[in-house]
């Protein structure tokens, strides 16, 4: 299948939506039926799935310091008391 083929291009647009969980159950079912008839597109689905998983797993995830959480709690406490005092 040629990637520039009109049908294939439409299918591939839906692939991204499917992988992002943006298709309904019926739309997804229809997409898979269509993909099965287009092996090139099915391969692209596999590659795109792999890319999304790759981003999710490889992008660095930072964790906040406990000291910042403590500082936020203290500021909230002070602010809460000030609000109560003004009531």
């Amino acid at each position: 299948m040629n990637p520039n083929d009109h049908t294939c291009t439409n299918l591939l647009r839906k692939v991204e939506l499917a992988l992002d969980g943006e298709l309904t159950h019926d739309e997804e079912k229809q997409l898979f039926n269509d993909l099965e008839q287009n092996p090139w597109c099915f391969d692209v689905y596999d590659i795109e799935k792999c890319f999304k998983q790759f981003l999710t797993e490889k992008i660095e995830r930072k964790r906040i310091d406990e000291s910042t959480i403590k500082c936020i709690r203290e500021r909230i406490q002070t602010e809460g008391e000030a609000i109560e005092g003004n009531r």
Binding site: V44, I47, I59, E60
Partner: peptide
């Protein structure tokens, strides 16, 4: 761009988070 980058290949699996980030 669609399908032009095959992340199933070994070179990508060895890529560390720093490069992606």
């Amino acid at each position: 761009h669609l399908g032009s980058l095959d992340l199933r290949q070994e070179v990508f699996q060895g890529m560390i988070g720093d490069e992606v980030t």
